[in-house]
Amino acid sequence: MQFDRAEIDALLPLPPATFHILLALVDQERHGYAIIQDVEARTDGELRLSAGTLYRSVARMVEQGLIAEMTKRPAARLDDERRRYYRITPFGTAVAKAEMARLSQLVRLARARGLTPEPT
């Protein structure tokens, strides 16, 4: 699917929380707390989204069309009916890819200048 390049660029650079939420939804739809846990696991506990930060981002991302609320719910026994599930939209994927390209470009530029990351 093709998206207007300008529409995508208008959203870049993405705030870190937004990028992480997109990443959490790339492989599967998740509910809020699952997103928090996924982000935390992937960053080795570095980024712990609070509930407020998460849903503030979610609200904005829904409005921007990056993610969408699932209308189809998982099987009832897996489901907690209080929860809402979110999935990444094609536009969200495109934006995540664009952000990734932007970040890799940055990293390439830094390497070309002879910069290497400190071993952690």
Partner: peptide, 17 residues
């Protein structure tokens, strides 16, 4: 408007936490 929309999710996520 925000509270109405996300009240339950916020409470649930906070409780999980």
């Amino acid at each position: 408007s925000f509270r109405t929309e996300y009240r339950h999710d916020l409470t649930a996520a906070f409780a999980d936490r």
